[in-house]
Design a protein around this nucleic acid. Structure first.
Lengths: 109, 109
DNA sequence: CTATTTTTAAGATTAAATAGAAAAATTTTT
DNA sequence: AAAAATTTTTCTATTTAATCTTAAAAATAG
């Protein structure tokens, strides 16, 4: 067990958090594609989600069938407490490094 | 060619930026270990650095031999303009997601 | 030549991407 | 109403890329 979170794993966790009540596969995919301006495959998303659940950073449950059009029941996701802690840790580290590098990383010519 | 930066690649870039004038292998390794409280191998660091140079996010040059103890000459690193842009993009996306998820990600019980 | 410091290379493991099959629900057709 | 087709979504298998581990090689000083 290692515990580190990859770049895509972190993006998925943050997106799920931002979607709150409506975090299921297809909505997560569309949200990432819109915000990150990057096209992702649903398969890549799903295998990442499975990995995150195994690591204990994500939990899920099946929703009730909606009376809209067709379709399989949605599986909803939520970031666990442990997942939130990891996200906070990663943010704290990056914020510190950005603070230290502010001058160096300026894009001004 | 894809262009995405992995979790460790980003950490390395930020650390190099934060070290400014003294960014060479061993110093980078020690800085990461101290700040991230995570032990890394020098080999993992160097293969990541090589990848970042190939992608154009990092440039390097050999330093002069120091007249201290023995040892090979140091190779110094610097984040390229392209690398800075990538770091800025990643930061902007995460900042946005954090802003949207603030309530959800609170650690309060 | 020996000890030190650092880089570099090779091989194994884990994360992420691609491609597409399988399920479950609704709608249309016979 | 049963069968077939359609829609929406989840899940599986395989390949490719990122990361880790281990250890060898190179350069410098004494």
């Amino acid at each position: 067990m290692k515990g580190f979170i990859g770049e895509f794993e972190e993006l998925v966790l943050l997106t799920i958090a931002s979607l709150a009540e409506d975090a299921y596969g297809v909505a997560i995919k569309e949200s990432i594609e819109k915000r990150a301006d990057r096209s992702i495959s649903i398969g890549a998303l799903h295998s990442t989600i499975t990995r995150l659940e195994e690591k204990g950073y994500l939990k899920s449950w099946l929703g009730e069938p909606t009376q809209e059009r067709g379709g399989r029941r949605k599986r909803y996701f939520e970031v666990t407490h442990q997942g939130k802690i990891e996200l906070h840790n990663m943010k704290a580290l990056r914020d510190e490094l950005w603070k230290l590098s502010k001058a160096t990383l300026s894009l001004a010519k």
